[in-house]
Simulated assay, not measured.
Amino acid sequence: MTNTENSFIASAKRVIDIEAKAISALNHRLDAHFVDACHLLRQCKGKVVVSGMGKSGHIGNKIAATLASTGTPAFFMHPGEANHGDLGMLSKNDVLIAISNSGETAELVNLLPVVKRLNVPIIAMTNSRQSALGQHANIVLDISVEKEACSLGLAPTSSTTATLVMGDALAVALLDDRGFTSDDFALSHPGGSLGRKLLLKVSDIMLTGDDLPIVNHHVSVAEALLEVSKKGLGMTGIVDDKNTLVGVFTDGDLRRILDARLNLHTAKVAEVMTEGGKVAHPEQLAVEAINVMETFKISALMVVDEHRQPLGAFNMHMLLKAGVL
């Protein structure tokens, strides 16, 4: 490496070391104040409103989003806009998380008398309990750092990282206390890939009715192949005279019988099908069906009820199209 490249690496390592120490120091501040903050947020009957200016505002926005997505209704309020009307967002049942490293940010401090008049409790994230914010707050969470990672000691770096981690600690502590589950998480993320993986069921994607590939076990291999080709799933279900699924016939089965040189028009599909076969159920999560398909190297599955009566079918392409893969 050149001297310049070594300098880049050295600067990066110094930043990471400083910020890691700032985060580690938070462990010693998780005391009764943190517990009180958790109780206050847990008992909040309205919304958790997070506010901060500048870099603290960016961090506050993220904390509000994390709280909201983990079961604590929350939103961000810009203190500058709040001074010009947006303070109407705040109601008496809310809790305010106010973020200011110095505790003296003018736009935020100007809001405090009105917030107190509304009788809205304040959780302050600041480095000074003696600051204007610290003195107005009901609970103070200490997010002070020994030094910023910026070599000039000016750019908010360690302090914003510590604030973000404290916010995450609050959100996850509340999540654990509520017994928030992956299903709950998915409900607040329905549009993303995570939501699709956690919410989408087999019944949401399977083909049904006339699109369902099904033949009776008495038909010839040639007739079964016609059904496979017509329905486009690379397989067909085989049912008995009571419409119970007794097996499947797939592209793989076809390759095996071609090697055996069977007469496709006279051989019965029941003679060459895969008996039984792996199946899915309509209420099963699509992601669970994927695990079965990958484990057994299957590209398509029949969907049946508790009596193995066929209800639907799907393949990997459909899962891919649905965004589950």
Results as ranks from 00 to 15, higher is better:
R29I: 03
F34D: 08
E5Y: 08
G277N: 06
A149Q: 02
V228T: 14
M89C: 08
D210F: 08
G247V: 01
G191L: 05
A65L: 01
N138C: 08
K201H: 14
I97E: 06
L258D: 12
A280W: 10
P113Q: 11
F34N: 11
E146M: 02
T208M: 13
A280P: 08
A322L: 08
I257H: 10
S91P: 07
A280F: 07
V120L: 07
V202P: 01
M316K: 12
H33V: 04
G195M: 06
S100T: 07
L174V: 06
T161A: 02
I290C: 12
E271G: 07
H84Y: 08
V95D: 00
G209M: 06
E148W: 01
V48P: 05
A22E: 01
N127G: 14
L258H: 12
V120D: 11
S69V: 05
A25R: 03
A186G: 14
T105F: 10
R178N: 12
L301I: 08
H28T: 15
E107L: 03
L154P: 00
A64S: 15
G312T: 02
S11Q: 12
G252N: 09
I23P: 03
G71H: 04
S151L: 12
R42G: 14
K47I: 01
G71P: 03
I139G: 00
G80D: 00
V50K: 01
E146H: 13
S11G: 03
E104F: 11
A267K: 06
L226V: 09
L226K: 15
K47T: 05
C150R: 12
N3R: 14
Q43Y: 12
D241P: 11
S203M: 04
N110W: 03
M89Y: 04
C38M: 06
E148P: 01
A171R: 04
K62V: 00
L152Q: 15
L262C: 15
V15R: 03
R129Q: 07
D86C: 08
V303K: 02
S11M: 13
S188Y: 15
